[in-house]
Design a protein around this nucleic acid. Structure first.
Lengths: 349, 349
DNA sequence: TTGTAGGCGTTATCAG
DNA sequence: CTGATAACGCCTACAA
């Protein structure tokens, strides 16, 4: 009877090597390698013998050696901006899940929204011979990206770029923002303020554009004084809301370009004695896990972050397999919760 | 004039190898290796020549090859439970920062609170020949940990274990919980409910114990009916609060074992028409980034998560350098914000 | 102090 | 179909 395979971490001395498997099953190392990789057809009996030896010895191929031998390292570099981002964190989970199912490991690094840091991350990752790269809303230029893609297949989000060996996936931020604003308009709001993101990011510009589009479609003039920008963080949202509150502008609704800023804005509103949604309606963007647990639960535009992670990983996997991915992100959709109220129609007052 | 070193990612063909550096500087590969690792004393002139060659060629040692050659991989395995945890996310950031300063890379993997998954993570990580391991509140048994530590230095949080090559760091959860409860008591509350965490985790048990300790110290009898447990997630907190609300028990304050559950509880309170803090005071635990941006901003026990990450990494680095770390986590402290109000003394009503 | 040789665990390229 | 043999890029005796 075959002894149950020993857990690798329970092994005593040096790890079981491919060579040991070869010896134990009476074939050459090359044959074992072939079986492992499906590189060539091997006679059934030898394969059986090897498989048994692998199981008995509890052999696990060494990715390091594999990588050195010019083969693949079975690892994928993933660049995010901050590893503790509530939005990208979920995407990373999706990436990790999908990748590990395919026996790949993800190497997560943070670019800190800084081109140079990000470039260094890329260099580090390439030094570790990753087989592919996923860049979540990176800041490096398209040129650097093309350069990178010459070495490994690359999937990027947050930008549209057409280049060999690069697959770009992005949300329709504009449409999402339009939806949010339109929802407010449909509830009777006309004085709608917007807290935008850092306008050097295309997604922030798109969201602003979507806001404008909805306004225009409803025949409401766009008033620049009603938009203040933050940095996509709670604090920035709070400050932007405070500026709005301090200005002479009046508004009955607020559309924040992401949930974190919406959260910050909610605090500012609260401190100013304004209630959500009775005094001002609030809509966010992203649908972070916490959106539904805010008080009141936040109406927001759903971005499938887990899906985003899964799909980017899946796309990369397809490229690694020599295919051409055609995956697309789901359409944005509004999630209605309790932070929006209708404005009372003030007919002929 | 020496040309500026080419960025690795700008290189054309194959990477620059140690051998090429050796050739360019007219020494043997071993000498270059020695200089790189400070393994032996080398004549100043040769060292200068090599250093120059390294700079000119933009040589970066290949960690993969290094790892294979039995040296170190300059990578550290980090096991968390969920990569998108708001609490551990920040800790991971600290780890990444500290490690990268020392030119180490972190390999983050998620154990999903599951012993088997976690064990598989450990095996994967060891397969990748990490030089050390950081396990954030892991679930594997102490035995497995000791076994692991035989192979690489290990730092763990969330448990106390004394073993060779293992360094355990933990917070004083009990004291933190005591502080929170005491604060409520000092504000006049006597009917204080508690939303606990999963009692199979020691930190959750400790926090409950701290709550009891404070009660006892104030001569307030502990009432089991006032404690409901969740899973450290918002949803669990909401449900626990709902159970509490549905029970015949009355309470004027609520101490949640973490901020996420406090957030969920806030929603339940809100839906029940109860205001925080006017109707019920609320205290959390962890001081997540979002605690200060809740409405109202949450009074909570500060756990220095960034510090936690930095210190675990630093401790590991010290072990890697052959030292014995003595680092300790800062004491818990209460952060007062706006979610607690005093109970009006109801004398002789 | 420095160079040579061998090996780390795999994969790839040849012959057979 | 299968087995030698040579890399992969670096480290570490051992020898000089």
């Amino acid at each position: 009877m075959a002894r149950p395979p020993a857990s690798p971490s329970a092994r005593k001395a040096g790890p079981v090597t491919l060579g040991m498997v070869a010896e134990a099953s009476g074939v050459s190392p090359s044959t074992v390698s072939r079986i492992l990789n499906g590189t060539a057809v091997v006679s059934a009996e030898k394969k059986a013998a090897v498989d048994r030896a692998i199981a008995e010895l509890g052999f696990v191929p060494n990715p390091i050696a594999r990588g050195l031998a010019g083969g693949r390292t079975m690892s994928i570099g993933v660049i995010t901006q901050f590893i503790d981002s509530p939005f990208f964190g979920v995407a990373m989970r999706g990436i990790e899940e999908t990748l590990s199912e395919a026996h790949y490991s993800a190497l997560f690094v943070s670019g800190h929204w800084d081109v140079e840091v990000e470039q260094r991350c890329i260099d580090t990752l390439m030094g570790r011979r990753v087989d592919g790269m996923i860049i979540l809303n990176g800041r490096v230029g398209d040129a650097a990206l093309r350069q990178l893609a010459k070495q490994v297949p690359t999937v990027v989000t947050g930008r549209s770029i057409k280049a060999p060996n690069v697959y770009a996936m992005d949300y329709d931020h504009r449409e999402g923002a339009r939806l949010a604003t339109q929802h407010l308009i449909a509830r009777g709001h006309r004085d709608i303020a917007h807290i935008g993101g850092d306008q050097s990011h295309s997604d922030a510009r798109e969201r602003l554009a979507g806001y404008q589009t909805a306004l225009e479609a409803a025949g409401i003039p766009f008033r620049p004084a009603l938009v203040e920008c933050g940095n996509y963080l709670e604090e920035g949202g709070r400050q932007a809301a405070e500026r709005l509150l301090a200005s002479p502008q009046r508004f009955t609704a607020l559309f924040a370009a992401n949930d974190q800023m919406a959260m910050g804005a909610a605090v500012a509103l609260h401190k100013a004695g304004l209630r959500v949604p009775q005094d001002v309606s609030l809509v966010g963007f992203d649908d972070l896990a916490l959106a539904m647990h805010m008080t009141p639960p936040l109406t927001t535009v759903h971005q499938a972050s887990l899906e985003l992670g899964r799909l980017t990983a899946q796309a990369l996997l397809e490229m690694l397999a020599g295919g051409k991915p055609t995956l697309k992100l789901p359409e944005p959709r509004l999630v209605e919760r309790d932070s929006v109220a209708a404005v009372a129609r003030s007919i002929g007052r």
